[in-house]
């Protein structure tokens, strides 16, 4: 609803992140932490556990935690998609980037943000939700990355749950031939986990940076849901 490019006439405070979006955000963040940790140790296991096999279940628990967090991640993602449909317009932003990209105005705003981050423009524009570069990153890195991780993740999960299981039927059966074979799917899954990790570093940095430099609340918005002008 911005009338000027700078967005200084926008109405604040504004309720940007509705409760389901906030819940999704923090659930997913937690799930991702667990997924990275356990995923790493599935690929490169801890030193051997001594004693009888029946006395420990270390890899089993690590894998269980990975699968459980994976399910939570996937379900949270699905709910988030649902909320994108029924929630406010900010809930849709990160999914609709390809449509926005058809509009020249979007690109103009996009390059203004880029110019700011390249220190060409001293101040960033104000947005109620994401700025255009953030939106693009959310879509290109997070949304696509998450979909890829969910699809390959369930494809790998379906290998263990065997033919006949839903994961095997809906994911494993076509993902493996598509990417060649199981080992290749593992490698891609692994690489994409790192892709999301890179995204997270960038995300954290810009969130904190915007919080400090933009004059709008950013970090606290994901807790309270409200975005306001800092005094």
């Amino acid at each position: 609803m911005s009338t000027t490019m700078e967005g200084r006439d926008l109405k604040f405070p504004v309720y940007v992140w509705e409760a389901p979006v906030r819940l999704w955000h923090w659930t997913m963040a937690l799930a991702m932490l667990v997924l990275w940790g356990t995923g790493y140790f599935i690929g490169s296991p801890l030193p051997s556990v001594p004693g009888e096999a029946s006395e420990s279940y270390l890899m089993g628990y690590i894998r269980f935690a990975h699968f459980a967090a994976g399910y939570i991640f996937a379900v949270a993602f699905l709910l988030r998609v649902y909320w994108a449909i029924v929630g406010n317009r900010h809930a849709r932003e990160i999914f609709l980037v390809p449509l926005y990209m058809l509009r020249p105005a979007w690109w103009r705003s996009f390059f203004r943000v880029v110019a700011h981050y390249l220190f060409i423009r001293p101040r960033n524009d104000w947005h109620q939700g994401h700025n255009q570069l953030a939106m693009a990153a959310m879509f290109g890195m997070y949304v696509l990355g998450a979909v890829f991780m969910i699809v390959t993740g369930f494809a790998l999960y379906g290998e263990g749950t065997l033919a006949g299981s839903w994961a095997n039927r809906y994911f494993t059966s076509w993902v493996l031939p598509l990417l060649g074979q199981s080992q290749a799917v593992h490698t891609w899954h692994h690489l994409c986990a790192w892709y999301l990790f890179w995204f997270t570093i960038v995300h954290l940095y810009f969130v904190i940076r915007e919080d400090i430099t933009s004059g709008l609340t950013v970090v606290s918005s994901m807790i309270s849901g409200w975005r306001d002008i800092k005094n």
């Binding site: 801890l46 051997s48 556990v49 096999a53 890899m59 690590i62 065997l162």
Partner: peptide, 17 residues
């Protein structure tokens, strides 16, 4: 099925051995 799914050493994998 994978070799892993029916491997007799699978308990050691699950145990982390």
């Amino acid at each position: 099925q994978r070799i892993h799914d029916k491997c007799y050493r699978r308990p050691h994998f699950d145990a982390g051995q």
